[in-house]
Write a protein that binds this DNA or RNA. Structure first.
Lengths: 349, 349
DNA sequence: CACATCATTGGGAGCGCTCCCGAAATCTAA
DNA sequence: TTAGATTTCGGGAGCGCTCCCAATGATGTG
């Protein structure tokens, strides 16, 4: 291996560097950790040896004494659901988290939920892993044991969604699902729709609950009849949209608010099969603004929310917490905006 | 914290357990690691104390002596490209890797590629991180430094694609892109198409190169004229398909082989804008079989390949390598199959 | 009953690092 | 020049574990 190579030499340690540079272990440690109390020329000499030998500190040894691993965990329990339906969300979130952890010299340990039979073992494994300085939890079911556990053990953690309890004791980043849903449904009302149905998201996830609440408030504020038959319970999936749409059509809706873009696609498919024109007969709006929302016909009116930013903010809060920069729980609610395209009927063409 | 809780108590160590159980550190270690030479009743007693105290071994301490971290790395350098265009591929791959690592009590460290300016630093960080027993590399550009590095340092690694060099010295899992492409293009020929164009994938990635090679061989075996003007270089993106399709239309094609389903969607859009009917005027086939391939109109004829399995196999090979179960490089080529839908014109309706 | 044999147990050494404290070197000022 | 202040440097202790080897106890044999 050439000395110029960037390859680390795993067999060389602090003591070796110290010997070669003619200084002590402690001095090398100071140089490596960029600490003061080392003269400029000594520092230079040590750095030269370090480069030449391709030395990299052993993270296990370091973690053993500092009690810090420079690793955070990212826990995504509901992958199977999330993945099959909206493959975009979770990589985008990871990307945001990754951007920040990378910039701050942290690494990320990924825990994807397994099958239901493996669920208990999965929880155990995540919880008993001690290689993480903190944890980001995304899309957990309401009854997940993580929140209680991490609160109990004083492990820094951040949720990427609104928790259903202990809201002021927990750090989280989310969007204002309720008012975003309110806005998009109100938009439909403004366009003259009177009988607006919805296919909801998963109601064990707060995102789903809040979007439904926004729908309810919009109808009530608009003085429209609140008809429970216009609510088709779903779970963010294509299938839910497809099946829900048939039920809603039978109720004679003139607009449908789908709790996700994927669900909206299912709705589209059902309407097409029934020869119902979008938006002329029934307007459709979604939620998420997936990249493909613009590629379907008619293009989908939906709510845009900054997923990548959500991940980045969650990571920032977590790392600030780990480093002691902040000591109180942080909550952040990111802005969304309505993206008006053709499926709502506001534009023609 | 209740003694029955599954929460680990991070402050308790081997010695503490030993004291409470009235045995030595060594005996507790044997119990924890499920080693022989401990009497049944001692083992029982120690296990009871471990459960009661919520003891979990400190992985840093363990790694320090064993030189094993129980962590593998997953390196995905080209996320920005992969992600925006085919958000499905990479989470699916992770899911497969995760399934196996979970079953075998390993954790996974995820390294997503950053912006181009950060590229060099990214490589450095991944390479100098010593927390991984082995690495899975997905969709790396041909000139990535990882292969050379990991070969040099004797780090176990597995590629998820065919490498462009050292093929017999490297473990990898892939699909037979060349013959899958061959089959799908030949299928078009069988349906009577004579002037078949292609929008290629990224030609710095072997998947792209091989699919093009399959296309070439199919034309040549069918005795069709090989016209370079029918090859529009792309990069797996929607945009590439959109732009490439216009160029191919000008060449008077009657069929287009898109190197990915996403690219096929771009092709669809271009054809629609030019009022060209699919499949009547121009047949279109894709590659990947994304879940949405069945949702577009007309549904897309494409090549299915087992992404999740790719991840699982890569993880299996890697872990076998780490554990010394295999000592020679392993190559695995997973089967693909043609999924015939409507866009190729083989089905009507 | 003495002695060899085998399973079980205990404790020292050491993995590579950080942290602390005391020693050495250097600088400052009278 | 010398005492004192300040900066730089060195080495011991210890993080929590595994691994090795020696000690102990149980069992069997002539």
């Amino acid at each position: 291996m050439s000395p110029q190579s960037i390859s680390p030499n795993r067999s060389v340690n602090l003591e070796d560097i110290a010997a070669k540079a003619g200084v002590s272990r402690s001095t090398v440690s100071r140089v490596v950790n960029n600490e003061p109390h080392v003269s400029a020329k000594t520092r230079e000499r040590v750095l030269a040896v370090i480069r030449q030998e391709g030395y990299t500190p052993n993270p296990a040894a370091r973690a053993l004494v500092t009690q810090r691993t420079q690793v955070i965990g990212v826990v995504i329990p509901q992958v199977p659901i999330v993945l099959f339906e909206d493959a975009y969300y979770f990589p985008m979130l990871l990307q945001g988290i990754s951007r920040v952890t990378h910039a701050r010299d942290y690494a990320m340990l990924l825990w994807l939920g397994q099958s239901e039979e493996e669920e208990r073992r999965y929880y155990q494994r995540v919880i008993s892993n001690r290689l993480m300085d903190g944890v980001i939890i995304a899309s957990a079911a309401a009854d997940n044991p993580f929140i209680d556990h991490f609160l109990e053990t004083n492990t820094p953690f951040v949720l990427v969604e609104r928790p259903d309890r202990y809201q002021d004791q927990i750090s989280y980043v989310t969007i204002d699902n309720e008012s975003a849903a309110y806005d998009v449904v109100t938009h439909l009302v403004t366009l003259g729709r009177h009988r607006i149905g919805t296919v909801t998201g998963n109601l064990t996830i707060m995102d789903g609950v809040d979007r439904l609440a926004g729908y309810r408030r919009a109808l009530s504020d608009s003085g429209l009849l609140m008809d429970e038959a216009l609510i088709a319970e779903g779970d963010f999936t294509y299938r839910a949209g497809y099946q829900g749409a048939f039920r809603l059509l039978d109720q004679g809706v003139d607009a449908i608010f789908a709790a996700s873009d994927i669900t909206a696609r299912g709705v589209f498919q059902a309407l097409q099969e029934r020869q119902v024109q979008v938006p002329d007969d029934v307007a459709v709006v979604g939620f998420d603004d997936l990249p493909t929302a613009v590629h379907i016909s008619p293009s989908l009116t939906t709510v845009h929310h900054p997923i990548e930013q959500k991940g980045a903010d969650a990571a920032t809060i977590l790392l600030d917490q780990i480093m002691g920069k902040v000591t109180t729980p942080q909550q952040r609610i990111l802005p969304t905006h309505l993206v008006i395209r053709k499926s709502c009927g506001a534009m023609t063409g």
